[in-house]
Design a protein around this nucleic acid. Structure first.
Lengths: 199, 199
DNA sequence: CACATAAGCGGAGGTGCCTCCGTTTATTAC
DNA sequence: GTAATAAACGGAGGCACCTCCGCTTATGTG
């Protein structure tokens, strides 16, 4: 079956689809630069649409935030595929984790509102965290399979190791610290692997 | 020692105290009638002060809500004393529980925002719930002591029995249902008490 | 192509938020 | 009582929210 929400999902008209996408894309940028309380009118303005159009597509701020969030997670997961194709699998894994750090970075500061949104809307959390760990699993498994990282770890171990990134305090050094955590982790993962790159 | 917050608590000027009280009182009414998102400008207007004055006393909506909430709890607890003096102790207990129902009634619908406020500000919760159960304990103990309700229960039992009031769904019948719960509970408490009123 | 029409657009307008600062007033000192 | 002054007042102004509805445009049909 193609889809079947209560009374929805008919294909949008071309202009509507265009505007909707433009809004989501601009919103991502504006939220990143001004925080989650950014002016919706600014978003509409920058996207080149009227404020009415914004509200038609996204009746509340939360709707917009949710869509932006889902798109970003989507992008993160797509990146896993692309990296996997263009790079040796251990390098792909490392690059992806660095990108993951960048991604988390933009989410800091949005904390309160985003947390409320996520606790309010539980499918949002399960959907997205499921996708992320699936993307990670794919990268880790590939790297283990071709011997560029050691064989006695799996995706859950790596995810667990990354969890320090969430919990670390919100200082100016956070980003650097997190990048170092990722390289450190990679060194550990390469250690003793059959085909690990030797620096 | 009288008080000693970091750098505060000097006695307010007479007009300031007046305005502050008026605002809190009006706010209680307006929140009750329009919900927690009521217009702050309306509150200022009805209290007969400028909007600037409202914001000086209560820099954010949450500040105002918190103060209103604390006052209401205060009132509920004061009522316990008054009822205890004017009525036989079992009657006082019953009347107080009915008033408790009214109090909870005004809080329904405010749920989300109030819940956020309470989880954000944990002393608010411990302060108020402590006071409420203390008031209830006083009433129950008195009624047990003079034999108008049975002796094998204590305040915690009663509080536990009342907890159904919170959890019940938010229907139109809620209030009636809750009132009946209270009478039912009172019948049970009077049953077999040495000096219970016999209908 | 031309037309009909449903889908979508946009922005004016009314309301609320919050800040800032010139004016008013309670209080203290004399 | 009067004067000095710190405290408090109030509302204009600027910005954001969100709705409503007259106008525009994409799309299907002949």
């Amino acid at each position: 079956m193609p889809e079947n929400n209560a009374a929805a999902d008919k294909p949008l008209r071309a202009d509507a689809r265009r505007n909707r996408d433009a809004l989501a894309e601009v919103a991502a940028a504006v939220f990143a630069e001004r925080g989650i309380d950014a002016s919706l009118e600014e978003i509409a303005r920058r996207a080149g649409v009227g404020i009415g159009t914004l509200y038609r597509h996204f009746p509340t701020r939360e709707h917009l935030v949710e869509v932006v969030y889902r798109r970003e997670v989507e992008g993160l997961c797509t990146a896993a595929d692309e990296l996997a194709q263009k790079h040796p699998s251990d390098v792909a894994l490392e690059m992806w984790m660095q990108r993951f750090v960048d991604y988390i970075a933009t989410k800091r500061g949005l904390s309160t509102s985003l947390r409320i949104l996520i606790t309010t809307n539980s499918t949002l959390f399960s959907d997205t965290s499921g996708k992320v760990s699936q993307a990670l699993r794919q990268l880790v498994d590939a790297a283990v399979a071709d011997g560029t990282i050691r064989g006695d770890v799996d995706a859950s171990d790596v995810l667990h190791a990354l969890s320090g990134i969430y919990s670390a305090p919100d200082t100016s050094e956070w980003r650097d610290r997190s990048r170092r955590l990722v390289s450190l982790l990679m060194d550990g993962l390469r250690f003793g692997a059959p085909k690990a790159a030797r620096p």
